[in-house]
Design a protein around this nucleic acid. Structure first.
Length: 259
DNA sequence: ATGGTAGCGCTGCTA
């Protein structure tokens, strides 16, 4: 069995004790984290080594930053869109590696801020470029997972209230079409494969007591190629990780694959 | 109730 997870930690410096605690408890084989908010030289490699994990980080500084933490090996590491143009040039939003035979693509999709805005336009371009990059660097016939914080809620039932999101990012037709385009390439939403009900969220804004009001969104996704889809045996969102002292505003999403 | 909270880093930006 292989257990893979994605978690937007909202600053690895602020969250390291909780990340270490969660790894010990949840025992992921591969953990993809987003928003490390640190430079590569500040990345706490030794903390993960001490837990039995290798790690690679594509960091930036005070914003963004993505890392893969694995106890099943890390090979063929790449970051960004390689030679393709990045609509968010300079941002550290993508790192990919092969971990235990699984091509693992960890993404932190741009937020988009407002509709309309040039940030929103570039979010759509970024998602389109992600598909182009996948097409040129991978085969959907292989074992591929594209996982991370997509900053898109794929369906109405993935947000607590569509009325509250009228006119906002994360739920627009074009953002959802960009996710659908990734799925057309040959990926499927592993969590929805096993759970169809509403009210299952992975993010709650810190503001306004949203977590306690159950005002959440499901924007952290694990998109799996067909070869991986066949192996999915469980999927969960670890809401407990959103509780207690100094939680991230996101909960980890955990998928288990049969061998 | 257009406030509210968190992180970075030191003033305001980002989410």
């Amino acid at each position: 069995m292989t257990r893979i997870a994605t978690w937007n930690v909202n600053s690895l410096k602020a969250r390291l004790p909780r990340v270490e605690e969660w790894i010990t408890l949840a025992q992921p084989d591969i953990l993809c984290i987003q928003e490390t908010k640190m430079k590569n030289e500040a990345f706490p490699t030794e903390a993960f080594t001490a837990l039995g994990y290798e790690s690679v980080h594509h960091g930036q500084g005070q914003w963004n930053g993505v890392a893969i933490i694995s106890r099943v090996g890390i090979k063929n590491v790449t970051s960004g869109f390689d030679d393709l143009e990045d609509p968010y040039e300079g941002d550290a939003r993508l790192i990919a590696a092969t971990c235990g035979g699984l091509r693992t693509v960890n993404v932190y999709v741009p937020n988009g801020r407002e509709v309309p805005s040039e940030f929103y336009d570039r979010k759509l371009l970024w998602l389109a470029q992600l598909k182009n990059w996948l097409t040129t660097t991978s085969s959907s016939k292989d074992s591929v997972v594209v996982l991370g914080d997509f900053n898109v809620a794929p369906e109405d039932k993935d947000v607590w209230s569509m009325e509250a999101f009228a006119g906002l990012t994360h739920v627009t037709k074009l953002e959802r079409a960009a996710i659908a385009a990734l799925e057309e390439w040959g990926l499927s939403d592993s969590f929805r494969q096993l759970h169809q009900e509403d009210g299952l969220y992975s993010f709650w804004d810190y503001r306004g007591g949203d977590f306690h009001k159950k005002h959440g969104m499901r924007i952290d996704l694990v998109l799996a190629s067909k070869a991986v889809e066949k192996r999915v045996i469980s999927a969960l969102i670890d809401r407990d990780a959103r509780k207690g002292e100094k939680p991230s505003d996101h909960a980890p999403v955990v998928i288990e694959l049969s061998d």
